[in-house]
Simulated scan of single mutants.
Amino acid sequence: MSSFHKVSVTTAEANDSVARVSLDNEAQHNTLDLRTIQELDDAFMAADRDAEIDAIVLGTTGDVFCSGADLGDLTEMAFEEGTRWMSQYFETIDVLRDTGKPTVAAIEGICAAGGNELAMGCDLIVAGESARFGQPEVGVGSTAAGGGVQLLPLLVGEKRAREMLLLGEMYPASQMQEWGLVNRVVDDGSARDEAVSLANDIVSTKSPQAYRAIKTIMKTWTNIGMVNQEMARDMTAAVWDSEEFRDRAEAFVDREDQTPRSFTGSQPVDGE
Rank of each mutant, 00 (worst) to 15 (best):
D42K: 07
V140Y: 10
A19K: 11
M164C: 04
T216F: 03
L118P: 03
V253Y: 00
G114T: 08
E169V: 09
M45F: 03
L181P: 08
Q28N: 15
S190G: 05
T264Y: 09
S22I: 00
P102W: 00
Q177A: 15
Y211S: 06
A119P: 14
V126K: 08
I125K: 05
T75V: 14
E194F: 07
M170P: 00
A127E: 05
E178F: 01
V149C: 02
V21L: 07
D234F: 01
G128F: 07
N25D: 15
R160D: 10
M170N: 10
G146A: 07
V156Y: 02
M226F: 04
G72R: 08
M164H: 02
N25C: 09
P260Q: 10
D270A: 13
A145N: 11
M164F: 01
R212I: 02
L167H: 10
G68C: 09
L23P: 09
I214A: 15
L152G: 06
S87V: 08
F133C: 10
V253A: 10
T10G: 04
L74D: 00
M45N: 13
V239D: 00
T36N: 04
R84M: 07
E250S: 14
Q38A: 13
C111A: 10
L154E: 15
G62E: 07
S207D: 14
G109V: 09
D54V: 03
I107V: 15
G225P: 05
Q88W: 01
G100H: 02
N223W: 02
Q28G: 08
D33P: 06
E108M: 05
A55H: 02
G157V: 12
P136W: 01
Q175Y: 05
P172F: 03
V227C: 06
S87C: 06
D234P: 00
D234Y: 00
V7M: 06
T83R: 01
E76D: 11
I93A: 12
D33T: 05
S87H: 14
E129Y: 03
G189V: 07
Q175K: 12
R212S: 12
A199V: 11
V186W: 00
V182E: 08
T31N: 09
V239F: 00
M120T: 05
N116C: 14
E76K: 14
M231D: 07
V140F: 12
T236D: 00
D187G: 10
E169T: 12
N228C: 04
R255H: 13
N183C: 03
F4N: 10
E169I: 08
R20C: 13
N116T: 15
P260V: 11
T36Q: 04
V140G: 03
M231E: 12
G128E: 12
G180F: 03
R248L: 02
Q135C: 05
G141S: 06
I125D: 04
Y89H: 04
G121N: 06
V57E: 08
D98A: 13
W221Q: 13
E137H: 03
N25S: 15
Q88D: 14
E117V: 13
R132A: 14
